[in-house]
Simulated assay, not measured.
Amino acid sequence: MAKESSARRRKPTPQDETTDSSQDEIGLDILRVLTFLLLASCGLSYLVSSGESFFWGMSNPSKVLQPAWWLKQLRGPLYLTPSELAQYDGTDPSKPIYLAINGTIYDVSSNPRTYGPGGSYHYFAGCDAARAYVTGCFAEDRTPDMRGVEEMFLPLDDPVVDRHWSAAELAEMKKKEREEALKKVHEHLEHWVKFFRDSPKYEFVGYVKRPEGWPGTEPVRPLCKEAAKGRRKRTVPKKGEEK
C-alpha cells in the first residue's frame, strides 16, 4: 500500500518552481515597500519635527498632526453670541480659551498663563474687547463698541485758547483733528487685529454674532478715565507761525 500511495503522488514540475519563485519575489516586493514606507515615515517625522524625532514622538506636534485641527477644518467657522463666547474665558478647564477682536474669534489656549485666570490679559478672554486694546482700560472697556474712542486723540476745547482762531478756522481745525483721531484709532486697532491674525500660536475659530442694529441699540460709552488723561488743550501758535 505504501508503494501504491507514493506512486500516486504528483511529481514536481517546472511550473512548481516558477510558482515558488514568483511567491518569493512577491514577498520581497512587499518587504521593499514596507521598508520604503518606514524610511519615508522616519524622514518625514524628522523634517516635520525639525530634527526632534524619527518616530513622531514630538513634545509639541504640528497642528496638522492633531485630530482636533482637522475637525476644525471640516467643521468650518463657529458663530458665537457674546454670552456663548463668555463660556470660553478659561475658568472651565474642559473648554478652550477664546477671545475676539473686532468680531473675529481666536483660540488662545496655547497661552493660558497670559489669557487664563490670573493672567495679565485675562480681561480679554471670553469676550470681544476691541475697545480696550485702544484705550488701555481693560476692566472698563470689555466691549467691541468703538464709538467715541477717537476722543482720546482729540484736544480739549478751551474758550481762552480757542479764541485765537476764528469760528471758521476752529471748525475746519476740528474737522481735521477728528479725521486724524479716527485714523489713529483704526491704526491702533489694526495693529492688534494683525497680531492675532498672523500669529502662529493662535487659531482662527469664527465670528461673533451681534444683535440686529448693534451698536445703535446701546448708549454711547463715555471715554474711560485712563484714556482721557492724555488729552491736552490746543497749542496757541506763536507769532509768525501759521495757525
Rank of each mutant, 00 (worst) to 15 (best):
A2I: 04
K3H: 10
K3P: 08
E4D: 12
T13R: 14
P14G: 04
P14I: 04
D16R: 14
D16N: 14
E17Q: 05
T18H: 02
T19H: 11
S21T: 14
Q23Y: 14
Q23C: 11
L28T: 10
D29Y: 11
T35W: 05
F36K: 06
F36W: 00
F36M: 07
A40V: 04
L44T: 15
Y46A: 12
L47T: 02
S49V: 04
F54Y: 06
W56G: 00
P61T: 04
S62E: 13
V64S: 14
Q66C: 03
W69I: 04
W70S: 14
W70C: 10
W70K: 15
K72D: 15
Q73R: 15
L74Q: 13
Y79A: 14
T81H: 12
S83M: 11
E84H: 09
Y88W: 06
D92N: 15
K95H: 10
P96W: 03
I97E: 03
Y98G: 04
L99T: 03
I101D: 06
I101F: 04
I101W: 06
T104G: 01
Y106I: 02
Y106T: 01
V108N: 04
V108M: 09
R113A: 13
R113F: 00
R113C: 08
P117K: 10
G119W: 02
S120A: 13
Y121M: 13
H122C: 12
G126Q: 05
G126S: 06
G126A: 00
A129Y: 02
A129T: 04
V134I: 15
E140N: 07
D141H: 08
R147A: 03
L156G: 02
L156F: 01
L156W: 09
D158R: 10
V161F: 08
V161Y: 06
R163H: 13
W165S: 11
W165L: 10
S166K: 11
L170Q: 12
L170H: 10
M173C: 09
K174T: 05
E177I: 10
E179R: 02
E179D: 14
A181T: 08
L182E: 14
H191L: 10
V193L: 01
F195I: 00
F196K: 03
R197E: 11
D198N: 02
D198K: 07
S199M: 02
F204R: 05
G206K: 03
Y207M: 12
Y207H: 15
R210M: 15
P211G: 06
G213K: 02
W214S: 11
T217R: 13
R221W: 07
P222E: 09
P222S: 03
E226D: 05
A227I: 00
A228W: 01
R231V: 09
R231C: 00
R232G: 05
V236D: 01
K238Q: 13
K238P: 06
K239A: 07
G240F: 04
E242L: 08
